[in-house]
Amino acid sequence: MSDAFSTRVLNVASGSGETVVDLTRKCEDFLREVAAGRDGLLNVFVPHATAGVAIIETGSGSDDDLLAALHTLLPADDRWQHRHGSPGHGRDHVVPAFVPPHATLPVIAGRLELGTWQSVCLVDTNISNVNRQVRLTFLG
C-alpha cells in the first residue's frame, strides 16, 4: 500500500446509553503514525446505519445539547415505521440524515486542522448496539 493512503479501524465501546464519544485524540494518534508531516485529508467514517460523526465542542455541554436536540427533532417513541429493537429505535435510523456517518478534515504538516473548540466525535443514539467501528483514512 502506498504511503499516500493509510487506513485503520477503531473499535469503540459506545456503551448502553446515548452518547457522544470524542475521537480527536485517536485521530491525532493515527496521523502521528501515518502522516509524517505531510498535508492531506483525514476521512472519518462510521459504517453503521444508526450512528454519525460530528465536529462539535465537547466538555462544555454542547455534546449533551446535541443529544437533547436530536431528542426534540427525533423523539424515541412509536411513530417510526422501522420498529424492530428497543422502543423508538426507528429514530436511530434517521439520525444519520442529521449527523452524517462521515467527515473529511484537513491535515496540515501531519496535524489535524481543527478550530480551537472543535472535536471529532462519534454520535451514537442506538442503545442496543454498544460496540462501534470507526474507519480513519489518511490521504496525503
Rank of each mutant, 00 (worst) to 15 (best):
M1A: 14
F5P: 00
T7N: 06
V12N: 12
A13K: 15
G15T: 10
G15V: 12
S16Q: 14
G17Q: 15
G17V: 15
V20W: 09
V20G: 04
V20S: 11
V21Y: 08
D22M: 05
D22N: 14
C27S: 10
C27G: 09
E28T: 13
F30R: 02
F30M: 08
V34Y: 00
A35T: 04
A36Q: 14
G37Y: 05
R38M: 07
D39E: 07
F45S: 11
H48F: 10
H48A: 11
G52I: 05
G52Y: 08
T58N: 05
S60Q: 13
G61A: 01
D64I: 01
D65C: 01
L67Y: 05
L67A: 08
A68V: 04
A69W: 06
L73M: 12
D78I: 04
H82R: 10
H84C: 10
H84F: 12
G85A: 11
S86A: 15
H89V: 03
R91F: 01
D92K: 00
P96S: 09
P96Y: 06
F98P: 02
P100N: 09
A103F: 02
P106T: 00
A109Q: 14
A109C: 09
G110T: 01
T116I: 06
D124F: 11
N126H: 12
S128Q: 15
V134S: 09
R135D: 02
L136H: 06
G140Q: 03
